[in-house]
Simulated scan of single mutants.
Amino acid sequence: MWLQAKESLSVQQTLVIDQERRNRFILGVLFTMVIAGTGTWVGALPGINRIGAMLSAILIAVIYRNVLGYPESIREGIQFSARFLMRFAIVLYGFKLNIDMVLHKGGMLLVYDTMIIIIAITATMLLAKLFKADLNLSLLLGIGTGVCGAAAIAAVSPILKANDEDTAIGAGIIALIGTIFALTYTFLMPFLPISALEYGIWSGMSLHEIAHVAAASMPAGQDVMAMGLLSKLGRVFLLIPLSIVLSLWMKRKGEGEGKQSAPFPWFLAGFMLTSLVGTYLPIPDVVLNDISKVSSFLLAAAMVGLGLNVHLSSLRNRALRPLGAMIIASIVVSAVSFFTLLWFGL
């Protein structure tokens, strides 16, 4: 009887511990979503809306971590948001990509976009070596600059086995610098020796995020913004072959160094599937807009989870040189894409 009572008590204690663990897990996920919601609200305020919800959420998370510390009791839920919600957000992000439009209307743009991605990554890495910067963070920034900003960084981070801090720093830098570039483009627009449509294409070829392209090209009109987004979608489309190349490179690198090879990024297969669904199935625009909002919110929640790992001292010590390399590379991308359009057109 005594042994049975002891075993019964042990089972009850285990159930209580498991329930407490589940509760902390749920609280961790909700914690990231609350901050993401706060960042979304702050990012919509006049003036602050230029930096957007994602950067606002990351900044709130970084401030929380460095003022109040990391909430250890709910770490498991936060880590779930940082990793699994991020992958799910990337899958949903695929609905934004119209593959048919890219392939049939943006053939030459794809050639230019490929060139831009190669230049962005190469220039960032060469400058990073010159500046003796952190190469892992610099590679993330080069990919974000060349492809589609924070979404690209989130997509390739698991492939490159980047740590959470690098991913968060990279996403924050991309969002901030991309916003500055978008504002600069808007200011320069009336003085540029190119047509309005060429300005839209230039924005799509060189700016970091889809939101940055929309913000920079919208003042020139809906047609200009449409061309800018088409150009940008070509770079988003190229995230798929780039990720495959990076996966193969990591696998070969792992084998060469006797380490575990990189797993296949199955969430990118989901990204491709949702791209096909969004392109070829008659989904109402209102549904696609809702999916886009959910994707952006989940990505912001994931970035909160990552931002909670950022030490400001580490940011100061490790990020300044990669930041310098990324800014110069962004200027190179902007200049090359501009003069390519000016001299050769489409």
Score class of each variant (00 low, 15 high):
Met250Asp: 08
Val213Gln: 00
Gly258Ser: 05
Val286Leu: 15
Val286Gln: 15
Ser314Lys: 11
Val287Trp: 14
Phe267Val: 03
Met225His: 08
Lys293Trp: 10
Met225Ile: 00
Ile201Gly: 09
Met326Arg: 10
Leu298Ser: 01
Ile210Thr: 12
Asp290Val: 12
Glu255His: 13
Gly228Cys: 02
Leu229Ile: 15
Arg316Glu: 14
Asp223Gln: 14
Leu230Gly: 02
Phe339Lys: 02
Leu268Val: 15
Ser337Asp: 06
Arg321Ile: 03
Pro219Val: 07
Val213Gly: 00
Met218Thr: 13
Phe338Glu: 08
Leu273Pro: 09
Ile328Tyr: 05
Trp249Tyr: 13
Val213Ser: 00
Ile210Lys: 00
Thr279Gln: 08
Val333Ile: 14
Phe297Leu: 09
Asn309Gln: 13
Ser295Gly: 00
Leu298Val: 03
Pro241Thr: 04
Pro241Ala: 02
Ala335Asp: 12
Trp343Ser: 09
Phe267Pro: 06
Ile327Ala: 09
Ser275Asn: 03
Ser314Thr: 13
Val245Ser: 08
Ser247Ala: 12
Leu229Gln: 02
Leu248Asn: 07
Val332Ser: 05
Phe338Ser: 00
Val294Lys: 03
Trp343Tyr: 13
Tyr280Gly: 06
Leu230Cys: 08
Phe297Ser: 01
Val304Thr: 00
Pro282Arg: 06
Ile201Tyr: 12
Gly254Met: 03
Arg318Asp: 14
His208Pro: 07
Val286Met: 14
Ala211Phe: 04
Val277Gln: 00
Lys253Tyr: 10
Leu315Pro: 08
Gly221Gln: 01
